[in-house]
Write a protein that binds this DNA or RNA. Structure first.
Lengths: 220, 220
DNA sequence: GTAGTATTCAACATAATTATTGAATAGTGG
DNA sequence: CCACTATTCAATAATTATGTTGAATACTAC
């Protein structure tokens, strides 16, 4: 096999991964899986696809190495195949935000309706946490929370906010965070909380940035 | 416009970017553009596509916000639209390396034929640079080199290696690096140098990792 | 075993992508 | 202004992706 052929093949392999990402529906599925593992039926409901379609999309994602599956009881549960996939999605969001005017417009339209949804800078959060002025919400999946989180943060994935709203003090501002500045889950959480009448904003960056800035981290 | 619609639209926008990446040929083009700006004809030659095809691929990349173009004299020069695109490509490579067995096989097959192409760890390079035992080659585009590089490194993009081979001392081992562990340009450089009979390896990580490890950096 | 259920498979129609060819455009250089 | 050239546009044919429906699997629970 010639060098040229091998190199072409290599790019085709990378393209295979990109092809798997090249569908709004599949990106939605990935975003939901980033919040925790899900079975086919649940994903079908969340995305509005038929079950068969959902299954087929999941096959594609699996062949591209992006998700893995395992059967537990009656259900097949799907999950992201690894952390590098979260990073890939974040990189995709970053490019979108930076280079597609439409993305910026849509994000604005959807998330920060009118008034101050400016994100909270890490320093500011730090100070207010010390004074006990805010409730910090970690909306990542439980495993990631367990591996390290902002001290005092409550772990509550977006899907659980509705049920567990009463666990959050009523009269304090809430600051939500997830994995990075382009992780949509924090946006979701803020939107959800605001819909319930709570004062909520999101942390400007995510947990990785918090950690790498040398700020305190709590484990387990 | 309902939230659901906006959110769907948002994912469609991200999918647009992924679609632009979802072709081996376009990834090749991006990889070449990562090495510096190029006109359409050059890219057509490098990829083996017809000029019209190349132009169309470039249109797609441009609509997705991944490349930008400007006319200089007779030629239209294309370049990557920003650093976030480099990071996106790196993330894609990382996922490939981690989750697709085929990628790993191909990389092995193409690059480290037979003997020790093990990468050089940063620490080891550091020591050997101090003793003047190695020639360090920075294969990134000139602009990135100017913004900071490993002390004493020679800047030489892959495309220039053939012409400028005489600038590299003959009897020393060469260590090439670029942007990160998944940046293919360092692999290319090593392959090229070895073809010319030089002893070459690549740095395990890339420059960003070198910098963030607190190792010395030279500017200009 | 049998009934029931979650998931996958297969076949189809529709729609989108790809590369090619040849023509059109726009801008340069004399 | 004219000839020339790099690039883009348009039309085509071949390939590939999408979503639907209904059937096939594989497993659970009784």
């Amino acid at each position: 096999m010639s060098n040229k052929t091998v190199k072409t093949d290599l790019f085709e392999q990378f393209a295979r991964i990109a092809k798997a990402l090249a569908s709004g529906k599949r990106l939605q599925i990935l975003e939901f899986l980033a919040q925790g593992e899900r079975n086919v039926e649940t994903l079908a409901q969340l995305t509005g696809l038929s079950i068969a379609s959902t299954s087929q999309h999941l096959q594609q994602l699996r062949q591209a190495g992006l998700v893995s599956a395992s059967k537990e009881g009656l259900y097949v549960f799907y999950r992201l195949a690894g952390d590098s996939i979260v990073r890939l999605l974040a990189a995709l969001h970053a490019v979108g935000q930076e280079h597609l005017a439409e993305v910026d417009k849509l994000v604005r339209l959807y998330y920060d309706s009118k008034d101050g949804l400016e994100p909270v800078p890490a320093k500011e959060l730090m100070q207010r946490v010390k004074k006990g002025l805010v409730t910090v919400l970690d909306v990542r999946p439980a495993e990631e929370y367990a591996a390290g989180h902002i001290p005092g943060a409550i772990n509550m994935p977006v899907s659980e906010i509705r049920k567990r709203l009463n666990e959050i003090p009523k009269e304090q501002e809430i600051v939500a965070y997830c994995r990075g500045p382009y992780c949509l889950m924090a946006f979701e959480a803020v939107a959800e909380l605001r819909k319930k009448g709570r004062a909520a904003r999101r942390l400007e960056d995510g947990f990785p940035e918090w950690r790498s800035a040398g700020l305190p981290v709590e484990i387990a």
